[in-house]
Design a protein around this nucleic acid. Structure first.
Lengths: 136, 136
DNA sequence: TGTATTTTGGTACTTTAGTATGAGCTCCTA
DNA sequence: TAGGAGCTCATACTAAAGTACCAAAATACA
């Protein structure tokens, strides 16, 4: 946010500078009016592109970031979340169990709880719901 | 592509128009030079934003667009692809069968073939691989 | 220190997923 | 017109996935 303010301050400053420059230029006749207009057009076109680029970057970050608040809101525990990640990686219960050094029974318990909390019937549906919620 | 050419043509035309307008304005003294500069700055700033938005849309499409060539390369048929979409939506074989007005047996056959072609052990893994390949 | 939550794991069971194999059908093409 | 590709469906089977219920540790927390 601070950067945005800085950028806009600089923009206004640049505009004011242009005013002065244009006054001088027109009076003295050093530059043609067309040249000034073209310069302004190009510069502000580039500024527009730049600003938009920046704003999109911020948005894109928030669109792919994991919504940890949502995870809490769904009452998904740390262990359950680890299991959910395993599911989304396409692992079987046995593979998740080996990865986390747990028994398959434990994973099954966790999976059942995850399905309840995500209101899913299957693990594949859980993947979809979790992606919609942006928690994976 | 045709649209891009059109937009740029219009831009050049607008610029030429501005040249004429500015000449007239300065000579006649109807508008202050500052007003003209400010107008140009704002207009071209917006044009910059707009153009960048458009270009990003095209890029974003290609980044999230479905890689149909890849589907062909993997020799995934039309029907199989429909089933794959069902899988990625978190549907069961029975649900996919009902959706496509087919028997569950048929879906199982398709799923087996999809798993072979994607080199996946499970449907959850198929989802991951298909997303990596950007075919869903 | 007692209580709540989380984590772990088991048994027994039902359901779904996936494999293997065979077969009939349509459409296209060499 | 014979063969290939794709689509459909069935049976029979094995392997996972998922449910229900229970219970013992471990951890957190007031």
């Amino acid at each position: 946010m601070k950067k945005t303010i800085l950028v806009f301050s600089l923009l206004i400053f640049a505009l004011l500078l242009l005013f002065q420059l244009s006054n001088y230029a027109v009076v003295s006749g050093d530059f043609s009016i067309q040249f000034i207009i073209a310069t302004i057009a190009i510069v502000f076109f580039m500024v527009g592109v730049f600003i938009h680029k920046k704003s999109l970057k911020t948005n894109r970050k928030s669109s792919t970031a994991i919504d940890y608040k949502k995870i809490k809101a769904l009452e998904i525990t740390d262990r359950e979340y680890e299991v959910l990640q395993g599911i989304s990686e396409g692992l079987s219960n046995k593979e998740i169990a080996d990865k986390l050094f747990l028994s398959e029974s434990t994973i099954k318990t966790h999976v059942s709880n995850i399905l309840l909390k995500l209101n899913a019937k299957r693990r594949t549906q859980a993947i979809q719901i979790a992606k919609d919620f942006q928690i994976i």
